[in-house]
Design a protein around this nucleic acid. Structure first.
Length: 847
RNA sequence: GCCGACGUGGCGGAAUUGGCUAUACGCGUACGACUCAAAAUCGUAUGGGCGCAAGCCCGUGUGGGUUCAACUCCCACCGUCGGCACCA
């Protein structure tokens, strides 16, 4: 039985009751609405908007949303005009697949899922500004996605090309290389294959350089920058022309002709004297033209076979390299040697022109290839003084060289190519040069002979932008028999997705939209003749590439967002999301933003000032949460049993924000207990505790203000919570807490556990929300004591501590130390040889 | 294979311009209080070894090194995790 004398305020902590109450209350007051052009300084905080799946909110989402919610609440209390919006990235395959399975229309499913997500978010007390909610599937939103596409098209940055694309036979959809994970479709997991298909592409490569250079302007985590740079993969090299020795292929003809040539890209021009073959990708246009008649059958068979393989299969390093000699030869422009031309599927068509020069002695892949087909191996670089100093393993390589490098490699399947920079041999006039020098000099020499060009290559490829699916933004173009491809008038946007019953993918690989004749048939804008709509749709990356702009002005009908408003709010000050989005999504949205910047539609060159990523939340068993493992944590259930505040506090306390972590139900209970203890703290306005203990409490409170404020700035939420726990423990020790410390504690706790804090705040008799209180400031005078504990070490080991005044001198410290019996014991009569004194820290006596 | 990170109690994790006898905070565990009992709650203890005790010694993956002083810096090795995929 409970204490009959206890007042009503000391009832048990029932989060369920107070949380609903305050969520309603906050909703009424519009506390979280951001004001355009407010005189307060602005702060734009953003989390990645979710894909509203049928599974509902994942506890990983909550980690991210809560973290920035805490910052948003704190920044408001610090006097900022905070924009913390939320929206829905709702186009995409899972919804479409689910719709196909159940027969419910994607529009309906999306609507239901959004309702559920929103309900869940509200039950967590997240302070989003719901008046700015956006949805990528809303025609008023995708009108502007289509508008942006039209600008790309009008400026020649959207183009069609017949592309060898990854084809997912299950989803019946073309995938960008970026979407193929391990040779498998990113979405459904089916093995992909290569197909040729006419596709829309966006010329992201035009922005490659700026996408690298402008990283200097922003504050991303270093590893995120590195990821972006590596993905773009800029490399400077040389494109070398190898003339084709055509006479060899023509029986009877004796005089060699060199009408055509093969362009080969290399970063290792210094190895050109070691070239012993060329290999073309199976897709290379010259393969068909220069293959000799007697080789034709064999080559065709090989090319056909390799087309069936996915890029992943073809490019496995472990896999044996295969190829076929096509009967033709080329001329090495450096030494006029005749080298055989092969076709091999380990060469990637889309990179460097789809042709490589084979230098077996200095490239691992080439070495493997040469070994298999008995090509010549010619050594042209040896280990030695290299001015660049880029040699990675000189000892091993030089040893193998001196003991007969190529005689004993037969049994070494790894290949022992010397791939580092070194000194040139067997390279005519360039012998003796370092690789670095040789690259420059040989390139210049070849350029003079008109046999080479300096070029920059990027790993980054243009973004394949069409999807043959229903649930995406229609591409706003029209195909006219007379005029070709014509842009839809901007006035006619949005081109709405037709509402139909059937939207199954077609066997032909065409979009389901192609079957809807009424929709497809239209008029050409130019000649008024009959025309057909483009039936491909956009990938779901499209809508998410610019949503942060729409939050600024979500209802604008004239432009995608008002320029003045953009100028007020941009850039996004802090953008948080999953590590898995730090290459593709981040790159794509930066690309779109730069394009819009060039059009003077947006005021900044970069969209996000600071980007951080949070770690994944794994299941309790350390595996990924998944229905099939039956280990998914349902947030609704936790809110029901322990309350949103406990869930929030636990998600912040569980570990370092950026690190992967396993869920722990017991950890959650610990945080729930913490809140229960907070609930039970008893403030007392009247009686004051003894002055001394009050002083300690005052100091601890100010220390906590400092700690929590600084930890929030550096996103160290876990240690901020721990500081709050320490303060709560101290408050719990004093029977009656002076109410100003109690209040300060509640304010510090409020961003983390908003409902509980608001409730307790109200119980104190406050009429206004705790979130209208200013964020407290600490007094550094109160934090610092006049005394400190001086560490006394002997030979670097701590042997004693003395509480001394701050400004004690070395001499005084030494005298104090030597007077201590403990120290005398350790010294055993010896005199210190050396004394190290760090003021305010320690005294070390060396004997 | 390449790139990046990391390695601290039974567990999640603190502490790194080198310096408060590393392990804050939380979990777990043990014992105790309350209870007929359990749950909840509260209290105490909790890295290892030796010791009755005072105390001493060893301890941040392993082995070396720099330093008065190393979880923190350097070298080598072992291990774990993440990302990428023959980029010429």
């Amino acid at each position: 039985m409970s204490d009959p004398l206890a007042p009503k305020t000391l009832m048990k902590y029932h989060p369920q009751k107070i949380e609903k109450k305050w969520q309603k209350e906050w909703g009424k007051e519009n506390l979280y609405q951001a004001r355009d052009f407010s005189k307060k300084p602005k702060k734009y905080l953003m989390v990645e908007f979710p894909y509203p799946s049928g599974d509902g909110l994942h506890v990983g989402h909550i980690r991210s949303y809560t973290a920035l919610d805490i910052l948003a609440r704190q920044k408001r209390m610090e006097g900022y005009n905070v924009l913390y919006p939320m929206g829905w990235d709702a186009f995409g395959l899972p919804t479409e697949n689910y719709a196909l399975k159940t027969g419910i229309h994607p529009i309906k499913i999306t609507r239901q899922n959004i309702i559920n997500f929103k309900k869940q978010m509200k039950s967590l007390g997240l302070s989003f500004d719901w008046s700015r909610e956006t949805n990528t599937t809303d025609p008023n939103y995708y009108k502007w996605t289509q508008w942006i596409f039209l600008q790309f098209f009008k400026r020649g940055l959207a183009y069609q090309a017949e592309m060898p694309i990854n084809w997912c036979p299950k989803c019946k959809i073309g995938l960008a290389n970026e979407e193929v994970i391990g040779g498998k479709c990113e979405r459904c997991g089916a093995q992909t294959e290569i197909r040729l298909k006419k596709q829309w592409l966006l010329k992201i490569t035009k922005y490659a350089n700026r996408l690298i250079n402008d990283l200097e302007k922003v504050n991303y985590l270093e590893k995120i920058k590195t990821q972006q740079i590596n993905w773009i993969g800029r490399s400077e090299g040389t494109s070398i022309k190898f003339k084709i020795w055509e006479s060899i292929s023509q029986k009877g003809s004796r005089t060699p002709k060199f009408k055509q040539y093969i362009k080969v890209f290399t970063t290792r021009t210094d190895t050109i004297f070691g070239v012993t073959a060329l290999v073309l990708a199976p897709e290379h246009p010259l393969v068909e033209k220069i293959t000799t008649p007697e080789k034709k059958k064999e080559v065709e068979k090989y090319v056909a076979a390799s087309k069936k393989k996915s890029e992943f299969e073809r490019t496995q390093l472990e896999k044996e390299k295969t190829g076929v000699f096509i009967g033709a030869y080329a001329l090495n422009p450096a030494n006029n040697e005749k080298v055989p031309i092969w076709v091999g599927d380990y060469v990637v068509a889309a990179y460097g022109g789809g042709a490589v020069m084979v230098v077996p002695a200095h490239d691992k892949r080439d070495y493997q290839f040469a070994e298999k087909y008995n090509l010549k191996i010619k050594e042209v670089v040896i280990s030695g003084h290299s001015e660049g100093g880029r040699q990675k393993r000189p000892t091993e390589e030089s040893r193998s060289k001196s003991t007969g490098f190529f005689t004993n490699v037969q049994d070494d399947k790894e290949g022992r190519a010397f791939v580092d920079y070194g000194t040139l041999i067997n390279s005519g006039q360039f012998n003796g040069l370092s690789s670095e020098e040789a690259i420059e000099k040989i390139t210049d020499w070849l350029i003079k002979k008109d046999a080479a060009q300096k070029t920059v290559q990027y790993k980054l490829r243009d973004w394949i932008f069409s999807r043959q699916h229903y649930w995406g933004e229609p591409i706003p173009l029209v195909h006219c028999e007379k005029c070709g491809i014509v842009a839809v008038s901007e006035k006619d946007l949005p081109i709405k997705l037709p509402y139909v019953e059937k939207y199954e993918p077609t066997e032909t690989g065409e979009s389901p939209l192609a079957k809807i004749e009424k929709w497809v048939k239209t008029k050409c804008l130019k000649c008024q003749g009959s025309a057909k709509r483009e039936t491909d749709t956009m990938p779901n990356w499209a809508g998410s590439s610019w949503y942060f702009l729409r939050y600024v002005d979500p209802k604008n009908k004239k432009v995608l967002a008002d320029f003045k408003k953009l100028k007020y709010w941009l850039p996004v000050d802090l953008y948080n999301g999953g590590m898995e989005h730090t290459t593709l999504h981040l790159l794509y949205s930066r690309f779109w933003h730069k394009f819009l910047y060039d059009l003077k539609v947006v005021p900044t060159a970069e969209p996000y000032e600071r980007r951080v990523s949070h770690g994944v939340v794994l299941a309790e068993d350390g595996r990924k949460m998944s229905k099939s493992f039956d280990n998914v944590i349902n947030p609704d259930e936790i809110v029901r049993t322990n309350g949103a505040d406990a869930l929030r506090v636990y998600e912040m306390f569980m570990g370092s924000f950026d690190q992967t972590i396993s869920w722990s139900s017991q950890g959650l209970q610990g945080c729930f207990r913490f809140l229960k203890r907070v609930w039970g703290l008893k403030p007392a306005a009247s009686r004051q505790p003894p002055a001394t203990s009050q002083k300690d409490l005052e100091r601890l409170t100010h220390q906590t203000i400092k700690k929590v404020s600084e930890d929030l700035d550096s996103l160290k939420f876990n240690t901020a919570v721990s500081a709050l726990m320490i303060l709560a423990n101290a408050l719990g020790e004093s029977k009656e807490i002076p109410d100003r410390y109690y209040k300060l504690f509640l304010i510090l706790l409020s961003p983390f556990a908003p409902h509980l804090s608001e409730e307790l705040w109200e119980k104190l008799g406050n009429k206004k929300s705790i979130f209208l209180e200013p964020w407290p400031k600490y007094d550094s005078k109160i934090i610092t004591k006049e005394t400190f504990s001086l560490i006394i070490q002997i030979n670097g080991r701590v042997r004693d501590k003395i509480e001394t005044p701050k400004n004690i001198s070395e001499k005084e410290a030494k005298e104090l130390a030597l007077a201590r019996p403990k120290i005398q014991k350790w010294l055993a009569g010896q005199k210190p040889k050396k004394v190290i004194y760090i003021p305010g820290r320690l005294l070390n006596l060396v004997v």
